[in-house]
Amino acid sequence: MRVGIGLPGGVPGVDGSMVIEWARKADDSPFTSLAVVDRYVYDSYEALTSLAAAAAVTTRVKLATTIVIGPLRNTATLAKTAATVDALSGGRLVLGMAVGAREDDYQAANIDYRQRGKIFTQQLAALRGLWESGTIGPRPVRKGGPEILVGGLSDQAYMRAARYADGYVHGGGPPRAFARAADRARAAWRDAGRPGLPQLWGQGYFALGEGAAARGIAYLKDYYAFTGPFADRIAAGLLTTTQSVIQYISGYEEAGCGELVLLPAIAEPSQFDRLAEVCRSL
């Protein structure tokens, strides 16, 4: 299993230069990817723009969205932006997409929340064709365009992943929850007659070091406030010790995860270094 790290752009108030510095360190780290999350109505950085910046200061690591909320973006714009990031990075983009769960983002983007599933399916059906035909350039580095992952917990999500994508990206949670979702994603994949196995990506939040736990929890409670007290559950899953990080990693590995992205709940350069240290020791 590979381990990636999230960019800190999802944490409010983070300085732009810090995000760049964070990304710059990635090539010389044990991490195999830099990942971003997506939310409109929040003090956070836009996902693909952040990856474009990361592309400029890295040459090795993959650049992944885990995930972007597809329907918030017009399909042509999304195709164009993703193709650009892909070209800028020499084909390192992994485009994870899902419908998301926040109605306020849809309101802000002026998209009908109830149509999100339908829009998403149309988008997935169209993206590859747009890249392949060269209708919307730049020409993708990899034949067929960037790798696509689909996220979500419904049977529809597993089917979309099997039908349109290269794999499935899970939204986070204990390894057992990931394993259940991964089983379904694999079942859908085989049922569809896709060769091999789906790529399986997982994610989790970390905040390491003294006093980090409380600050990390405060961030997650705020970021996930829209889920009500469920935010407490997410916050309770925050990885705050070396022990919990390595157990999380081995749990995901055992469940068949291909790449696990650990997202920072605190935007400080030391967080990158602490996690890198833990991962180097593995």
Binding site: M1, R2, D166, G167, L197, L200, E253, C257, G258, L282
Partner: peptide, 9 residues
């Protein structure tokens, strides 16, 4: 980390 197990993809 990359080489610990067979990769999925």
């Amino acid at each position: 980390i990359d080489g610990r197990t067979g990769s999925q993809g």
